[in-house]
Simulated assay, not measured.
Amino acid sequence: MTSVSLVGPGEEPIVLDVPTAPVRVPTTRRYLMCAPEHFTVAYSINPWMDPTRPISTALAVEQWTALKETYEGLGHRVETIQPEPGLPDMVFAANSGTVVDGRVLGSRFRAPQRAAEADHFRRWFLANGYRDVVMPERTNEAEGDLAWTGRYLLAGTGFRTDPLAHAEAQEALGVPVISLQLVDPRYYHLDVALFVLADDLVAYYPEAFSPGSLRVLERLFPDAVVATEEDAACLGLNAVSDGRHVVLPVEAVHLAGEVAKRGFEPVFVDISELRKSGGGPKCCTMELRD
């Protein structure tokens, strides 16, 4: 047995005795992020958004900065894109591009309020040396609904991304695509229902998926971490893993304990203000897989 200490900001450590797990090795990642300088909740396009609730842009910036510094403290490189006035959800960079082996598939948003974000990110890619950039014809909310496992591209649909965009993704990125049907409107994107821990290992919330898609996940990932309702409800599955460290919301203590049992090291962040718009660590983080 191995003792694992889980510590959230301002909390007493929780010590778990867990079975000896595989040694997990992190890999250095490169991320693209956008500061929430214009963050607010001025409209509602998902069940988390309530324009009548008070919002602190300053607190959102503080939480985003802490997330960025967490990545940098783990040795990762963070690029940034200039936030644009009038685009309060541009902070959720994951929704604006999917990059695999240097190939870029841009985004096409379902909600008109976010549509302009796609071209800002397209221009960032071109200005930063990417030449293989494809913009989708079908609605495609990028890493919000597309998760690269190292072997497959898991592709969510049901609320945002058009299922026909999955075929576009396969053509643009040249990787096999597995379609998954989402059924709970609270978990409207794949990245709030599932995240990749390491090559061929994921964590997911079963009730977010249709029965057939759940059987697919069970077949592909028989050793997956299965999350609870409490894990999902704090957006615990909107997490980011580098193969060893798992950055996740501070409330996701149960999920942290489960990933610790698999040899991963949970790293807590506070995303309470950003969560008012339905986003968490992963939503703020596009991975640049060059």
Rank of each mutant, 00 (worst) to 15 (best):
V134A: 11
F109M: 13
V99L: 13
A21D: 11
L214T: 03
E207F: 12
D184Y: 03
G280E: 02
F264K: 02
A232T: 08
N128V: 06
S96T: 15
P222Q: 09
V225C: 04
T2H: 08
A169N: 01
F221G: 04
R24A: 12
S96P: 03
D191C: 11
E79H: 12
T65M: 00
V25W: 09
K261I: 01
L146T: 08
T161H: 00
L182G: 04
Y43C: 06
A21S: 15
R131W: 10
G106T: 12
K282W: 11
G150A: 10
V61Q: 10
K68M: 13
R110F: 13
D200M: 04
G75W: 11
A111S: 12
G150C: 04
L220S: 05
L164V: 04
E230A: 15
E141H: 08
Y204V: 04
T285F: 02
A93D: 00
M49T: 02
L217G: 00
Y130T: 00
G106A: 14
Y187K: 14
A147T: 07
Y31T: 13
E171I: 07
L180I: 06
A239L: 06
V269I: 14
R77A: 13
A256T: 01
P185G: 05
M90L: 15
S5K: 13
E137Y: 04
V18M: 14
E84I: 15
V240G: 01
E37P: 00
L288F: 06
E117L: 05
G236T: 07
E137H: 09
F109E: 02
E12R: 14
L74D: 05
Q170R: 15
P206Y: 10
F264P: 01
D242M: 01
P136T: 00
P266M: 13
N46H: 09
T139V: 12
V134G: 08
E79K: 01
V175E: 03
S5W: 07
A127R: 13
V23W: 03
T98I: 07
R110S: 12
E141R: 03
M1D: 12
E287L: 10
H120C: 05
T157N: 10
L180H: 09
A35M: 08
R262A: 02
V250N: 06
K68Y: 10
F221H: 05
T139P: 02
R262E: 01
D184S: 13
V192E: 05
L180N: 02
N95S: 07
P185F: 02
A233T: 06
R123T: 09
A227W: 04
Y188A: 03
L214Q: 11
A35K: 14
H166E: 00
R186G: 11
F159I: 04
R53C: 10
E62A: 15
I178K: 01
R131P: 13
E72R: 09
T28L: 15
I14N: 03
R53Q: 15
L237T: 08
T52Y: 05
I81M: 11
E117D: 11
G156I: 07
